[in-house]
């Protein structure tokens, strides 16, 4: 199918982009890499008369290291995150997660902001960002606000973005020096497929006991999920029993949907398998 005709608007700044979006209301959408949006428009599942090209705004693609964390511009491509020495050093699980997305052509084009704003429930990068306690910076006509990524999602393909608001930056706080992170993706069909589920974990050990613990999950709820209530395991000693207990807590928070990549039950079971494997790996 061909894409229906539209006007491509080229804002010079975030404020201008926001104005354009507000002016055209439901008829307009921001476009970043276009890897998702173009497919949906070609399928005529979505229709917009105006697309606001975020790539024409200078400076939104930078990745920098600040004192307290990484700042990743919303227009940074997946490939640039995956290959950034900064990210690889500061947040290896994040580099890993981005490296799994689709194929190299997609990663060269797709943007970090597009991945998050799309709010699909089974994407690779969100779990890794969630365990780092990432925040997103949203800029709109009313000014700028900072929202924790875990609060950014409202449901399937839904976010808290208000009309005219643009995701401009992702802030990834540095993990404590003792913390280790890892991202495991499980594909149930082709090895190259979207994940059936994805599990990111952050764990620091204190004399062999659990210090900080965070688990980010995708594919197992309407939106990417940061497991709650894991503080209770602080100070416990690492063991298979402990991992089972963690899995029980996580399991209560899941609400998987059955899809082509697995039934809801299977996803639940696989979450258990991969949470345990991931924690084992980090504790070893």
């Amino acid at each position: 199918m061909t894409i229906p005709a539209f006007d491509l608007l080229k804002p010079g700044s975030v404020a201008e982009a926001s104005e354009m979006l507000l002016e055209h209301g439901d008829e307009a959408r921001p476009i970043a890499g276009g890897t998702t949006l173009v497919i949906l428009m070609k399928q005529r599942a979505l229709r917009f008369s105006h697309l606001v090209d975020l790539q024409s705004i200078p400076g939104l693609e930078r990745i920098t290291d600040n004192d307290d964390g990484l700042s990743i511009g919303a227009l940074a491509t997946h490939r640039s995150v995956e290959r950034s020495p900064l990210v690889q050093r500061r947040a290896p699980a994040l580099a890993q997660a981005f490296s799994h997305v689709g194929n190299v052509r997609i990663r060269e084009t797709a943007s970090v902001g597009g991945n998050l704003a799309h709010a699909d429930y089974r994407l690779d990068p969100p779990p890794a960002l969630l365990v780092h306690g990432a925040e997103v910076v949203l800029a709109g006509a009313e000014g700028t606000r900072v929202v924790a990524l875990k609060d950014f999602y409202r449901g399937m393909y839904e976010t808290v973005l208000e009309p005219g608001e643009i995701l401009v930056e992702v802030r990834v706080p540095h993990a404590a020096p003792a913390a280790r992170t890892v991202y495991s993706r499980f594909s149930s069909l082709s090895a190259n497929d979207w994940p059936c589920i994805g599990v990111a974990a952050l764990l620091s050990l204190d004399n062999g006991n659990v210090g900080e613990l965070a688990l980010g999950l995708s594919g197992v709820a309407e939106a990417p999920l940061l497991a709650a209530g894991l503080e209770r395991f602080q100070g416990e000693s690492c063991s298979e029993e402990l991992w089972d207990a963690v899995c029980d807590v996580v399991d209560e928070q899941l609400s998987p949907v059955s899809d082509l990549r697995g039934s809801a039950d299977y996803k639940r079971e696989m979450t258990r398998v991969w949470v345990r494997r991931t924690l084992r790996e980090l504790a070893s």
Partner: peptide, 15 residues
């Protein structure tokens, strides 16, 4: 339900 290559998988080089 899976009438496109986004959802219908064929063997990739990784398989």
């Amino acid at each position: 339900l899976n009438g496109s290559l986004l959802d219908y998988q064929i063997a990739s080089i990784k398989d």
